[in-house]
Simulated scan of single mutants.
Amino acid sequence: MSIKVENITKTYGIQKALNNVSFELKKGEIVGFLGPNGAGKSTMMKILTTYLTATEGTAQVNSFDVNTHKKEVQKCIGYLPEHNPLYLDMYVKEFLKFNANIYKTNSNRIAEVIEQTGLASEAHKKIGQLSKGYRQRVGLAAALLHNPEVLILDEPTTGLDPNQLLEIRSLIKHIGKEKTILLSTHIMQEVEAICDRVIIINKGEIVVDKRLDQLRTSNQQIIEVEFDYRVEERFLEHIPNVSNIKNSIGFVYEITFNTTKDMRPVVFDFAHDNGLKTLQLNQKNKNLESLFREITSK
């Protein structure tokens, strides 16, 4: 396992930031680590990178314990924190050389990571002259300098414009072909585009840990239907496989079914047989964003 977390708890006074958290990441996985603000994501990442010590439980990176083998763990990990710490008055190459000296890394790696992260055209500039997107590239380049097997990225695309976001997303996906990546973000489309698996944490506890393909093949589907007048929700419960009914607005209803069968024809026939006119009928997929809202709002 690249990362193994067992029963991690972290308390600040009487406040529990993490409560008995356990998960494992295999080599080569790109895992989206999701949760609302204050859920415990950054705390977990800081424990894995040895910046914080857990109150209880154990964690390992490449079989090295984060408490007893900190130096070995730090060598295994490339870390890009949420607030990317850069020296703005340093040139890109100068900053990377500075980091290479810290890691005692061969200076040949500087040219390699500049090429890998697409920084060649900006490498002669001071970091303070770069756009937010290129600054993130510098942070990623610094994290990759010592060629770590594990990357931990905390909100790597915060504040980027759509073009910059696509560039960094593509870069992370490319890097993920060779490395294990734990990626924290609030952008659900980003997770769906590049991640293999998603872990959702809420109030310090893991509430979902599934591969994205498992989430996409859920038996649950939502049909949005608009009738020509308001009907009692209990009347619609006579449709087969109904698990939930919500009158979203006016004469529009969201009907949730526990089946993989397309229920639109069934809803249409039910309406016709009971003298209802169907003004619109749509299938709504429960995407990651709606699942996230549903779980974290409970």
Results as ranks from 00 to 15, higher is better:
I201A: 04
K97V: 04
T50P: 11
H124M: 02
E178T: 10
E226F: 01
L182D: 08
G133F: 09
L279H: 09
K97Q: 12
A193P: 03
K125W: 04
E192W: 02
L96E: 04
I30D: 00
G40D: 10
N99F: 10
Q189S: 13
P85C: 00
V5A: 13
T9Q: 09
E294H: 11
R264L: 08
I222L: 10
E167W: 02
K261D: 13
V5Y: 03
R216W: 06
L145H: 00
L151H: 07
I47L: 03
G35Q: 12
I168Y: 04
T296F: 02
I201R: 08
Q214N: 13
Q129W: 06
I222F: 03
G57L: 08
F257V: 12
A123P: 03
A39T: 04
L48C: 05
Y12F: 13
T9G: 05
L88N: 11
G133L: 06
K286S: 08
V5E: 03
R293S: 13
K75G: 08
G176E: 01
A271L: 04
L281V: 12
R230T: 11
Y87L: 06
S184N: 14
L52G: 01
A141V: 01
V242T: 07
K10H: 11
M263K: 01
L151I: 09
E254T: 10
T43P: 01
H146V: 08
K27E: 13
R216G: 06
V61M: 01
L279P: 02
S297T: 15
